[in-house]
Protein backbone atom coordinates (compact mmCIF):
# COMPACT_ATOMS: atom_id res chain seq x y z
CA UNK A 1 0.00 0.00 0.00
CA UNK A 2 1.37 3.40 -0.93
CA UNK A 3 1.70 5.58 2.11
CA UNK A 4 0.75 9.20 2.06
CA UNK A 5 2.54 11.63 4.30
CA UNK A 6 -0.57 13.69 4.97
CA UNK A 7 -2.68 10.65 5.82
CA UNK A 8 0.07 9.25 7.99
CA UNK A 9 0.42 12.47 9.96
CA UNK A 10 -3.28 12.98 10.38
CA UNK A 11 -3.89 9.44 11.60
CA UNK A 12 -1.02 9.63 14.06
CA UNK A 13 -2.70 12.63 15.61
CA UNK A 14 -6.27 11.42 15.33
CA UNK A 15 -5.79 7.86 16.57
CA UNK A 16 -5.27 8.66 20.28
CA UNK A 17 -8.11 11.16 20.23
CA UNK A 18 -10.58 8.70 18.75
CA UNK A 19 -9.38 5.99 21.10
CA UNK A 20 -9.91 8.21 24.14
CA UNK A 21 -13.36 9.11 22.85
CA UNK A 22 -14.18 5.42 22.48
CA UNK A 23 -13.15 4.84 26.10
CA UNK A 24 -15.33 7.76 27.12
CA UNK A 25 -18.28 6.17 25.30
CA UNK A 26 -17.53 2.88 27.01
CA UNK A 27 -17.50 4.33 30.52
CA UNK A 28 -20.47 6.67 30.28
CA UNK A 29 -22.48 4.01 28.51
CA UNK A 30 -24.47 3.03 31.54
CA UNK A 31 -25.98 6.47 31.93
CA UNK A 32 -25.57 8.26 28.60
CA UNK A 33 -25.46 7.19 24.95
CA UNK A 34 -22.57 4.79 24.50
CA UNK A 35 -21.62 1.43 25.88
CA UNK A 36 -19.29 -1.42 25.06
CA UNK A 37 -20.56 -2.09 21.57
CA UNK A 38 -20.55 1.53 20.43
CA UNK A 39 -17.25 2.20 22.14
CA UNK A 40 -15.72 -0.87 20.55
CA UNK A 41 -16.93 0.20 17.11
CA UNK A 42 -15.44 3.66 17.64
CA UNK A 43 -12.13 2.14 18.66
CA UNK A 44 -12.42 -0.11 15.61
CA UNK A 45 -12.76 2.96 13.46
CA UNK A 46 -9.63 4.34 15.11
CA UNK A 47 -7.75 1.21 14.12
CA UNK A 48 -9.06 1.55 10.57
CA UNK A 49 -7.52 5.05 10.52
CA UNK A 50 -4.27 3.62 11.85
CA UNK A 51 -4.33 0.96 9.17
CA UNK A 52 -5.04 3.51 6.44
CA UNK A 53 -2.05 5.54 7.52
CA UNK A 54 0.58 2.92 8.22
CA UNK A 55 -0.65 -0.48 7.15
CA UNK A 56 -1.15 -3.54 9.26
CA UNK A 57 2.29 -3.23 10.87
CA UNK A 58 1.18 -0.08 12.63
CA UNK A 59 -1.85 -1.89 14.03
CA UNK A 60 0.30 -4.76 15.27
CA UNK A 61 2.67 -2.32 16.92
CA UNK A 62 -0.17 -0.84 18.94
CA UNK A 63 -1.78 -4.19 19.76
CA UNK A 64 1.01 -6.77 19.91
CA UNK A 65 -1.42 -9.65 20.39
CA UNK A 66 -2.88 -12.21 18.05
CA UNK A 67 -6.43 -11.26 17.23
CA UNK A 68 -7.59 -14.70 18.44
CA UNK A 69 -6.23 -13.82 21.87
CA UNK A 70 -7.90 -10.41 21.87
CA UNK A 71 -11.24 -12.02 21.03
CA UNK A 72 -10.72 -14.72 23.63
CA UNK A 73 -9.72 -12.25 26.32
CA UNK A 74 -12.88 -10.23 25.76
CA UNK A 75 -15.12 -13.27 25.93
CA UNK A 76 -13.32 -14.48 29.02
CA UNK A 77 -13.78 -11.13 30.75
CA UNK A 78 -17.49 -11.07 29.96
CA UNK A 79 -17.94 -14.66 31.13
CA UNK A 80 -15.92 -14.19 34.32
CA UNK A 81 -18.01 -11.14 35.20
CA UNK A 82 -21.02 -13.40 35.17
CA UNK A 83 -19.27 -15.94 37.35
CA UNK A 84 -18.21 -13.18 39.72
CA UNK A 85 -21.76 -12.58 40.78
CA UNK A 86 -22.03 -16.31 41.57
CA UNK A 87 -19.10 -16.03 43.96
CA UNK A 88 -20.98 -13.28 45.78
CA UNK A 89 -23.94 -15.61 46.12
CA UNK A 90 -26.11 -13.98 43.48
CA UNK A 91 -27.48 -15.61 40.33
CA UNK A 92 -25.28 -15.67 37.24
CA UNK A 93 -24.76 -12.27 35.60
CA UNK A 94 -26.64 -10.22 38.16
CA UNK A 95 -25.15 -6.79 38.66
CA UNK A 96 -23.94 -5.23 41.84
CA UNK A 97 -23.50 -1.54 42.51
CA UNK A 98 -20.53 -0.34 44.50
CA UNK A 99 -20.32 3.28 45.65
CA UNK A 100 -17.54 4.96 47.46
CA UNK A 101 -16.68 8.54 48.31
CA UNK A 102 -13.01 9.39 48.03
CA UNK A 103 -12.10 12.95 49.04
CA UNK A 104 -12.27 15.65 46.38
CA UNK A 105 -13.65 13.38 43.68
CA UNK A 106 -17.21 13.21 44.93
CA UNK A 107 -19.12 10.01 44.58
CA UNK A 108 -17.72 7.22 42.46
CA UNK A 109 -20.23 4.61 41.47
CA UNK A 110 -19.16 1.32 39.97
CA UNK A 111 -21.64 -1.07 38.46
CA UNK A 112 -20.11 -4.49 38.01
CA UNK A 113 -21.65 -4.95 34.59
CA UNK A 114 -19.09 -2.41 33.42
CA UNK A 115 -16.64 -5.31 33.20
CA UNK A 116 -19.11 -7.17 31.04
CA UNK A 117 -19.27 -4.09 28.82
CA UNK A 118 -15.48 -3.91 28.67
CA UNK A 119 -15.54 -7.50 27.44
CA UNK A 120 -17.93 -6.52 24.66
CA UNK A 121 -15.66 -3.58 23.79
CA UNK A 122 -12.59 -5.81 23.56
CA UNK A 123 -14.41 -8.33 21.39
CA UNK A 124 -15.54 -5.70 18.90
CA UNK A 125 -12.03 -4.26 18.70
CA UNK A 126 -10.66 -7.78 18.22
CA UNK A 127 -13.11 -8.38 15.40
CA UNK A 128 -12.00 -5.24 13.57
CA UNK A 129 -8.34 -6.14 14.02
CA UNK A 130 -9.05 -9.63 12.71
CA UNK A 131 -10.67 -8.23 9.58
CA UNK A 132 -7.86 -5.75 9.04
CA UNK A 133 -5.28 -8.46 9.54
CA UNK A 134 -6.65 -11.08 7.19
CA UNK A 135 -8.43 -8.96 4.58
CA UNK A 136 -6.24 -5.89 4.76
CA UNK A 137 -2.82 -7.46 4.78
CA UNK A 138 -3.72 -9.92 2.05
CA UNK A 139 -4.82 -7.10 -0.23
CA UNK A 140 -1.75 -5.03 0.54
CA UNK A 141 0.63 -7.72 -0.55
CA UNK A 142 -0.89 -10.92 -1.92
CA UNK A 143 2.50 -12.63 -1.76
CA UNK A 144 2.68 -12.35 1.99
CA UNK A 145 -0.56 -13.71 3.29
CA UNK A 146 -0.33 -13.75 7.06
CA UNK A 147 -1.30 -17.27 7.85
CA UNK A 148 -2.67 -18.50 11.13
CA UNK A 149 0.67 -20.08 12.00
CA UNK A 150 3.30 -17.59 11.02
CA UNK A 151 2.34 -14.08 11.85
CA UNK A 152 4.51 -11.78 13.94
CA UNK A 153 4.44 -12.83 17.56
CA UNK A 154 2.70 -16.08 16.82
CA UNK A 155 5.52 -18.52 17.39
CA UNK A 156 5.98 -19.30 21.02
CA UNK A 157 9.09 -20.38 22.75
CA UNK A 158 8.92 -23.02 25.39
CA UNK A 159 10.79 -22.73 28.61
CA UNK A 160 14.03 -23.95 27.09
CA UNK A 161 13.77 -21.34 24.38
CA UNK A 162 13.09 -23.77 21.60
CA UNK A 163 10.66 -22.42 19.05
CA UNK A 164 7.40 -24.26 19.13
CA UNK A 165 5.07 -23.65 16.28
CA UNK A 166 1.73 -25.09 17.06
CA UNK A 167 0.93 -27.52 14.28
Amino acid sequence: MRSSLILDTVTRGAFPLVLVFSLYLLFVGHNAPGGGFVGGLTAGAAFVLLYAGGGIQRVHEVVPMRYENVLGAGLLLAGVTGLGSLVLGEPFLSSAIVKWHPPLLGEIKLVTVLFFDIGVYVIVVGMVIALLTVLGAYGDDPDRMPSMVDRPATTRRDRRGIRRTRQ
Partner: peptide
Protein backbone atom coordinates in the same frame (compact mmCIF):
# COMPACT_ATOMS: atom_id res chain seq x y z
CA UNK B 1 -27.97 1.57 38.59
CA UNK B 2 -28.01 3.02 35.08
CA UNK B 3 -29.80 5.91 33.42
CA UNK B 4 -29.25 4.71 29.85
CA UNK B 5 -31.99 2.15 29.53
CA UNK B 6 -30.74 0.86 26.17
CA UNK B 7 -27.43 -0.08 27.70
CA UNK B 8 -29.05 -1.48 30.84
CA UNK B 9 -31.22 -3.73 28.70
CA UNK B 10 -28.18 -4.96 26.78
CA UNK B 11 -25.84 -5.69 29.64
CA UNK B 12 -28.22 -6.45 32.49
CA UNK B 13 -31.84 -7.27 31.73
CA UNK B 14 -30.90 -9.26 28.67
CA UNK B 15 -27.32 -10.00 29.69
CA UNK B 16 -27.65 -13.65 28.76
CA UNK B 17 -28.66 -12.74 25.23
CA UNK B 18 -25.72 -10.41 24.94
CA UNK B 19 -23.35 -13.07 26.22
CA UNK B 20 -24.69 -15.42 23.55
CA UNK B 21 -24.42 -12.77 20.87
CA UNK B 22 -20.85 -11.82 21.63
CA UNK B 23 -19.96 -15.51 21.65
CA UNK B 24 -21.43 -15.81 18.17
CA UNK B 25 -19.55 -12.66 17.19
CA UNK B 26 -16.25 -14.16 18.31
CA UNK B 27 -16.94 -17.42 16.50
CA UNK B 28 -17.96 -15.57 13.34
CA UNK B 29 -14.86 -13.36 13.42
Amino acid sequence: GGHNVVNVILVDFRGYDTLGEITVLVIAA
